[in-house]
Design a protein around this nucleic acid. Sequence first.
DNA 1: ATATAAATTTAGATTAATCTAAAAATTAAT
DNA 2: ATTAATTTTTAGATTAATCTAAATTTATAT
Lengths: 226, 226
Amino acid sequence: MCFKFKGMITLTEENYIKAIYQLGKYGTVTVSTNSIADALDTKASSVTDMVKKLAEKDYLNYKPYQGTSLTPKGKKIAADVVRKHRLWEVFLVEKLNFSWDEVHEIAEQLEHIKSEKLINELDKLLDYPTHDPHGDPIPDKYGDIKKTDKILLFSLTENAKGVCVGVKDTSSAFLKYLDKHNIALGSEIKVLSREDFDDSMVIQIDGVTMSISQAVANNLFVKEKG
Amino acid sequence: MCFKFKGMITLTEENYIKAIYQLGKYGTVTVSTNSIADALDTKASSVTDMVKKLAEKDYLNYKPYQGTSLTPKGKKIAADVVRKHRLWEVFLVEKLNFSWDEVHEIAEQLEHIKSEKLINELDKLLDYPTHDPHGDPIPDKYGDIKKTDKILLFSLTENAKGVCVGVKDTSSAFLKYLDKHNIALGSEIKVLSREDFDDSMVIQIDGVTMSISQAVANNLFVKEKG
DNA sequence: ATATAAATTTAGATTAATCTAAAAATTAAT
DNA sequence: ATTAATTTTTAGATTAATCTAAATTTATAT
């Protein structure tokens, strides 16, 4: 039976801390009550309650009406959860034949499993991956995360070239769209032209020419080349 | 974010159903309120409440003061949880270098992960194992479980021979004792003599002679040979 | 600078799972 | 067949996480 320690963090608390970590760009900026409520699909009043509780426990800095930021203790918890989430995603894709549009929901569950040995062995089994299947960086066991200089494809100018390194929207619908059009991490992209009217753009992707909407360009991360 | 369906079973409910399944010999007999309370380390009054709720939802048959048994629906839920628990245990031992005394607690967490594809792919990765690292049978995806004719080592008479096929006590302490004395699943055992005074016995295990206490003999399952 | 809008917090209620203590039913013992 | 012991259930409270609705604070816009 799963013993409970005093001061053991609950699943709900972990989810709040993770949301604050991600909304606050890996714990570097303050986030608003409403943005947390949106992210967790809950009400602002619930967020206020929880945020006060987590501040009490020293996971958060909180000043009423001024938003919330993570303490170092909170940041470590969050980084661990994100690390687990992303390692499990790699596992699902690499070892269990999942595609990148299927892994998110399951990783949401697996990220809460508590066992240091488990996650370290998983890391080893997967040969210490640095990024998850969507191109997001995996925090190391100390909670440090390597931020890459990725930019949105939408911000590339005409004739600029880049490599696809990540997605912003990780919804199944978007990822399936990318699969259908053979857009994957590592694809070489060149912007052929941009359309002012609807902000669509024509690109060449691994040699193939296609037109993409603003919605797509605003959810694909690239690393600009040269 | 983990969506909630109406009628989705909670973690607590799953734990009750699993306990009733195991206490009632894989759902074949009725179990008492107190035995459930013991197994789940909770109070009888809590069990009554939960059992009424689960009966309402058609997972259990319940008559006040007469104990509880699983409905087919409850039995399927329970078998699925046990299947997941045991498959994850195999995974931890086979793929992540855990020893059999370390896996139980983690599997208690992993058994609640909900994804049919996940568990079927795991099954495939592990090459469809039939037993977990402690020798317990793994229910198939239809919830059917193969009961073996294993008996306690304590019930063997002098000069009887058998093979070790399972453990009753899966505590880390007991499993470490077995490791220390090179007793493992598959070990060949012969009873050399029994001691009336303290119910200990002298056995030969894979050719090595040793004495074991009643506590040990009552927690080792064997399959008798000829 | 003041009014209005938006964001946030408080107050009070609700639900799930639990508990303690008391009451009721069942079982065991003389 | 009563009494005593045990088991189980009920009644009422508690805690965590949530909600609605009202109050308050901060930001925005003339």
